[in-house]
Design a protein around this nucleic acid. Structure first.
Length: 837
RNA sequence: GCGCCCGUAGCCCAACAGGCAGAGGCACCAGGUUUAGGUCCUGGCCAGUGCGAGUUCGACUCUCGCCGGGCGCACCA
């Protein structure tokens, strides 16, 4: 920047002005003008067709960084394109402003989390404005504002009324560092998604959203999203939901009223069941164990509880378990089989109990081998099979085994048939039924933290759980700060007795508020709906306006939310639809996942010392050049290595484009039809292609096309049609409009120099005369044996026969054929002729 | 272990639906301009598409197998 200034000092300001524009001065000039014109305010009453452009709202930690710069630059290309194409565009922005970093900062600095949060929000707000993204700031929201979280609480209570929010005791994921529980989605490879600490299990009573009620629909709708959502997100969600089909089977236990029910995807292997395994941390195991085995069982359970998730999930360690001392009855053979407890069965999947079929399941095989339990194969293995358990296709064998008496016989049946026959038998006998299971668990939403939405529930000894009355919402957080917020295993709110101790709204007796707060993913599960009517007072959003704006036409953001935010937001949308408040089934019609900005082949990090400061880059090259660099770097989904990029080169290009606007001498409104036809064709082609590129998210190619147009226009001015040709004006105006999607400042400056009023952002997409897109002649290639031997200039509508005749008459072709007999001629008019000799 | 994606000039990246491998940029070189090793203008340089097969008149593009890189899932019965 300072370099720019010193370069302008020389004797002739005129000359300096002609060579380069002052990046900072241009930014300072236009920012207040845009502020005044407010060109991106979405009008709820506009008759124009709507577009809703959404980008993931940030968490306010410090100032904006390169990642924010990339995602918003890409997003803004689309939003600004839609404005230019004449849509009414809603492009809102806000902050996901509850969360742990603010709380940690508050403890460290002995202050209130709001101090950190709102200071950062202001910083980011100012940065966003200067960065020139076309946000409609009139819709700004913060999830930590009581006006916002009032409705988060309202939604929680409505969900609860529908049976979709409930409390249960269960072993939950616990982050020992953050001192809070985590949802399954927030545990990555056995570690806390946020801080990386190894997650352990704890038995706690917590609030859950019953997202599993929507498992099937969440899965089914992915088919509709497949064409417009990134494949990896769709796949990730399918895997996460994890639907499987199988059966529930009851194994009777002598002396116990209830049988042990298992879930299996392979009911056809039931004859190979030589033992049962129950999750060691389940209530079922505790209930089944005999007095004689209790001591051993409890010792084993203690050992397991001390393990971290990482240890527990390791697949290569030996199987462990303890015999519970009871036996169960195989419903098809009547055989008595031992029941064991183990940690390789999960308490919260299926029924927490599994029939052990070592012949068909590798885990069971290992367990049987370890414990000396019998192994029976029930599926014929292929010739030469040398593995252990076999779970492939093959006819059923030993079902029943010779000499075993059973009312069911599935020997010889293929796997699918055997499954069907077994389920039919079990259903008829009343000892089982076909069943579907999902990997997806209910969403644990309680958090033992302060800086979040208080759960609006009061616990009364007499009345139980009582909802905070709607007219008392928002239930605001008590004022806590600094050391009050230190993690102590229970929510900091629990210690705020003034706040916690209340009269029961129902009976008036002494009661306590629920002291947990909600997972911040609850806040972000509906913010895109609030944007439709951000000041609405009668509900979380105005259903009429949601009807107008929803769904979001594009959602741009990071792929790290593939199964977190994106799944939760879909769930909320479906529930709100079922509540009659929304008409859409899905919130986001299409999606774009940008890559990340790295440096020197590595993720930017403090420890590597390879961080790139957005502020420094903006100061050195200006907003436009940084935005252009990010958009031009490559396909949006790809990571950008900043070390490979050249923001200086981007700035040079922008200077070249800008210079065009000073060279144009024809008047505003000069009839383009009188202009140079060759340049007009290039302009038309560029505008046409640019639209296509944007709509297929190939923004880097769009920029390359604009560069070509700039080059062509330069040539026309210097050595062609000349600066007064109307086609030069037409081309330069097109450059300004196209550049307005990426480099708003220089585009505005060009627009003014071309004699127009601001703002170029709303100038409208250039008109393209379709006649200019039709080539007057094309080059046809003549190949001999697939090698190019000649080129012909031909009419675009030349016939196959005509082209073939011309090709074979061409001297170069005749020479190449060299008298050999022509065996075959392939003609693809007007582009190609291939002669086979 | 299973699944998905990607390998094109020194570097970042293009190539519609199989049909001329290069659109654009960076870097580099040369000439012009210049007080100028900068800016600007002009021109140049640079790969036969990771490897090996197959299909085809024709393969960067389709199929199969390797090699290399990335991502996702992973004791879910």
């Amino acid at each position: 920047m300072s370099e720019q200034d010193t370069q302008q000092a020389p004797e002739s300001p005129q000359q300096a002005e002609a060579a380069a524009y002052d990046v900072r001065a241009v930014q300072d000039k236009w920012l207040p003008v845009w502020e005044r014109l407010d060109p991106f305010r979405a009008d709820d009453d506009s008759p124009r067709e709507k577009k809703y452009a959404l980008t993931m709202f940030p968490y306010p930690s410090g100032d904006l960084h390169m990642g924010h710069a990339e995602v918003t630059a890409l997003h803004d290309v689309i939003a600004r394109y839609w404005w230019q194409r004449g849509y009414e565009v809603m492009n809102p922005m806000g902050w996901d402003s509850f969360g742990l970093p603010a709380e940690n900062a508050a403890i460290k600095n002995d202050e209130h989390p709001a101090t950190y949060t709102y200071a950062n929000i202001e910083t980011q707000y100012e940065s966003f404005k200067r960065y020139g993204i076309s946000f409609d700031w009139s819709r700004r929201l913060h999830t930590s504002d009581p006006e916002y979280y009032r409705w988060t609480q309202w939604l929680f209570l409505k969900f609860r009324e529908r049976g979709l929010a409930y409390r249960k005791s269960s072993p939950v994921n616990w982050c020992p560092n953050d001192q809070t529980v985590l949802a399954n989605e927030q545990v990555v490879d056995g570690r806390c998604e946020r801080c990386g600490a190894e997650v352990t299990k704890r038995e706690l009573t917590q609030w859950y959203f019953k997202i599993t009620d929507y498992a099937q629909e969440l899965l089914d709708c992915l088919d509709d999203l497949e064409p417009t959502w990134p494949a990896r997100v769709v796949t990730a969600q399918r895997n996460w939901i994890g639907r499987s089909e199988g059966a529930h089977v009851d194994f009777a236990v002598e002396g116990r009223a209830d049988p042990i029910t298992v879930y299996t995807t392979r009911p056809d292997t039931i004859f190979g069941t030589t033992f049962m395994v129950v999750a060691v941390d389940s209530a079922l195991a505790d209930d089944l164990v005999t007095d004689g085995q209790r001591a051993a069982f409890e010792a084993y359970r203690e050992e397991i509880r001390k393990e971290t998730e990482i240890e527990r999930l390791a697949t290569d360690r030996p199987k462990t378990g303890v015999d519970l001392g009871v036996t169960a009855t195989n419903p098809v053979t009547g055989a008595q089989i031992p029941v064991w407890a183990t940690d390789y069965v999960l308490a919260d999947y299926g029924t927490g109990a599994v029939m052990g079929v070592p012949g068909g399941d590798q885990r069971d095989w290992e367990f049987a081998t370890e414990m000396g339990l019998p192994i029976v194969r029930t599926t014929q293995t292929p010739d030469g099979f040398e593995g252990e358990a076999f779970h492939g296709e093959g006819p059923a064998i030993n079902s029943p085994a010779p000499g075993v008496d059973s009312p069911l016989d599935i020997n010889g049946l293929a796997v699918d048939e055997a499954k069907r026959a077994t389920i039919a038998f079990l259903e008829q006998q009343g000892s089982g039924e076909g069943a579907v299971n999902f990997r997806l668990r209910d969403w644990l939403l309680s958090r033992q933290r302060y800086w979040g939405v208080p759960i609006p529930i009061i616990h009364c000894d007499a009345c139980g759980e009582v909802a905070v009355p709607y007219d008392q919402l928002p239930l605001e957080l008590p004022e806590l700060r600094g050391a009050d917020l230190k993690p102590k295993g229970v929510s900091p709110l629990a210690a705020a007795s003034d706040w916690v101790d209340v009269a029961c709204p129902t009976c008036g007796g002494p009661a306590k508020r629920d002291s947990d707060t909600m997972d911040t993913f609850v806040d972000s599960s509906w913010y895109f709906l609030r944007f439709c009517s951000p000041r609405y007072e009668d509900g979380p959003f105005d259903p009429e306006l949601a009807k107008k704006w929803m769904p979001a036409d594009i959602y741009v953001g990071g792929v790290e939310h593939a199964v977190l935010h994106l799944l939760y937001a879909r769930f909320f949308t479906k529930v709100l639809r079922d509540m009659g408040m929304l008409e859409v089934d899905e919130p986001f019609a299409s999606q774009l996942n940008q890559g990340i900005v790295i440096n020197q082949g590595r993720k930017m990090s403090k420890s590597l010392g390879n961080g790139v400061s957005l502020g420094d880059q903006l100061a050195e090259f200006g907003v436009d050049a940084v935005r252009l660099t990010l958009v031009f770097a490559g396909p949006p989904e790809d990571d950008i290595d900043w070390a490979d990029m050249s923001p200086a080169g981007s700035l040079r290009f922008l200077q070249r484009a800008w210079r065009l606007s000073g060279d144009v001498t024809s008047p505003v409104g000069a009839a383009p039809a009188d202009g140079d036809i060759a340049l007009r064709r290039v302009t038309a082609r560029t505008v046409h292609d640019a639209a296509e590129m944007i709509e297929s998210y190939r923004f880097n190619v769009m920029v390359a096309r604009v560069m070509e147009l700039v080059n062509a226009t330069r040539k026309a001015i210097d050595s062609g049609a000349g600066p007064d040709d109307p086609a030069v004006r037409e081309a330069t105006e097109a450059v300004a409009v196209l550049l307005s999607l990426v480099a708003p400042y220089v585009a505005e400056e060009m627009w003014e120099r071309l004699g127009h009023e601001p703002t170029v952002a709303r100038a409208g997409w250039p008109e393209v005369d379709p006649a200019l897109l039709v080539e007057e002649s094309v080059t046809a290639v003549v190949q001999i044996q697939g090698k190019v031997r000649a080129r012909l200039d031909v009419a675009p509508d030349i016939s196959d026969a005509n082209l073939e005749q011309q090709a074979l008459a061409d001297p170069a072709v005749v020479r190449a054929i060299d008298g050999r007999p022509v065996r075959k001629v392939i003609v693809r008019a007007p582009k190609l002729v291939n002669v086979v000799v």
